[in-house]
Design a protein around this nucleic acid. Structure first.
Length: 402
DNA sequence: TCTGGGGTCCTAGGACCC
DNA sequence: TCTGGGGTCCTAGGACCC
């Protein structure tokens, strides 16, 4: 999708159309640009740039908060259209998908004309622009769609893959970021064509497994461990996490613990929604100076309970936090999903079951009355922080009896 | 310029086991 | 008396993507 978040926001507020728009937060907030309109990009604004930098580069830009649920809703609409073109659809992200069009000629005609009809249908059904890349591998299709933007279609004819890629910057290869680009530059490799002239063994020596993948990519192949699945073989999530960056760094234990409780609840809730049980619980801690640590603990049995997650997180936090140090960010991460093997002792099982019931009741209440309607007390001196719509992470406020 | 949030994959070392 | 080789699991960190 082209400038997806911006385009969706324009549907909700048509006055944004044609203007410099930055999605991701307000101009004076801590945060980065999630998406910028083409108008804003003219001023050098791009995604991942700090909001404050964007405000300096483009002072007249309109800053809009992100609305994830809106994007998910439109992503689902797009997905609906895609499935009418091929049964093999793989959503690669919220605004990106691969379609395997092999064998659809009888139904949709030649792939290029199918692409044109898809282009039209996406626009008429969602009012959004997209770009389409066509190729014999995912890599080629993805790079082609990037080159087709905005609102274009680009077909790389089979056999022409290497020729299409050769003049492009290595940075255009998905997976090559700043670091890899610099390492390649030191070897005199700037374009994909330069890369393809080195043999596989040389690249493997320098970059290990990744070097071998790079060699394949320079020829337009997916091989190398990144894109080996069949299109449409969508795999479930491997981890679930939530994190929060404070607008002001803090060293207030109550506030920090309150945030960890909240994040644990959010992770627990999503585990239950997806019927998952996690064995590894990880804390993320970023200090004022941006140094970041992660500390994980592996549970004897997988869990989806807020209380068990928070218990681990709380202990990891107190074992690792430099007392009094200003904290910028906290995160809670759950991974190593396993089936719960209920062979613990019966007493524990009964206790867990009751928690399970209490939590799904709480989940229901949150569905009905909003996120802030239910919370577990953190048990800090018999009080908890009130959370309101304006104060979603439980910043210090008036205290209520637990 | 002062750096979000939610993910995936890879590397590497240590513990532990046979 | 000073040591192998293969495997798995756990933990920490980092590159990268949208």
């Amino acid at each position: 999708m082209d400038a997806f978040f911006v385009s969706v926001e324009e549907l909700f507020d048509p006055s944004l159309k044609g203007k410099a728009v930055v999605v991701g937060g307000q101009r004076d907030e801590r945060g980065v640009v999630a998406a910028a309109s083409y108008e804003a990009r003219k001023y050098g604004v791009h995604s991942a740039m700090p909001l404050r930098t964007a405000a300096k580069l483009c002072p007249h830009a309109i800053f809009v908060d992100g609305h994830r649920h809106r994007y998910l809703e439109y992503s689902e609409k797009v997905h609906g259209v895609l499935t009418t073109f091929s049964p093999l659809v793989e959503m690669a992200s919220i605004d990106e998908a691969y379609l395997d069009m092999t064998g659809t000629e009888r139904l949709h005609g030649p792939a290029l004309s199918a692409a044109h009809r898809l282009h039209h249908k996406i626009k008429s059904e969602t009012q959004l622009n997209c770009s389409i890349g066509m190729g014999s591998s995912r890599l080629v299709a993805k790079v082609a769609s990037a080159k087709a933007k905005p609102h274009g279609i680009l077909w790389v004819i089979p056999g022409q893959e290497a020729r299409f890629l050769a003049p492009l910057d290595v940075r255009d290869i998905p997976g090559v970021g700043k670091v890899t680009e610099q390492s390649l530059l030191k070897l005199g490799i700037q374009r994909v064509g330069d890369l393809s002239r080195f043999d596989d063994e040389f690249l493997e020596e320098h970059f290990g497994k990744w070097g071998l993948a790079l060699a394949g990519k320079s020829r337009g192949e997916d091989a190398g461990g990144w894109f080996v699945n069949e299109v449409g073989a969508d795999i479930g999530a491997k981890s679930i996490s939530h994190e929060h960056t404070y607008n002001q760094d803090t060293a207030d234990v109550d506030q920090l613990e309150s945030t960890l409780m909240r994040l644990s609840e959010m992770v627990g809730r999503r585990l239950r929604e997806q019927g998952l049980h996690a064995r590894t619980i990880q804390l993320k801690l970023r200090y004022k100076d941006f140094t970041t640590i992660t500390r994980a603990h592996c549970l004897p049995a997988p869990t989806q309970l807020d209380t068990e997650i928070f218990e681990q997180i709380r202990s990891l936090f107190h074992k690792n936090w430099r007392k009094g140090a200003q904290v910028r960010l906290l995160g809670v991460h759950a991974a190593s999903f396993e089936n719960p093997n209920s062979q613990g002792n019966l007493l524990e099982d009964g206790r867990r079951k009751r928690w399970q019931q209490a939590l799904s009741a709480a989940d229901h209440l949150r569905d009905k009355f909003g996120e802030s309607s239910v919370s577990l007390a953190t048990g800090l001196g018999g009080t908890f922080r009130e959370r309101t719509h304006e104060n979603p992470v439980g910043l210090p406020g008036k205290k209520k009896p637990a």
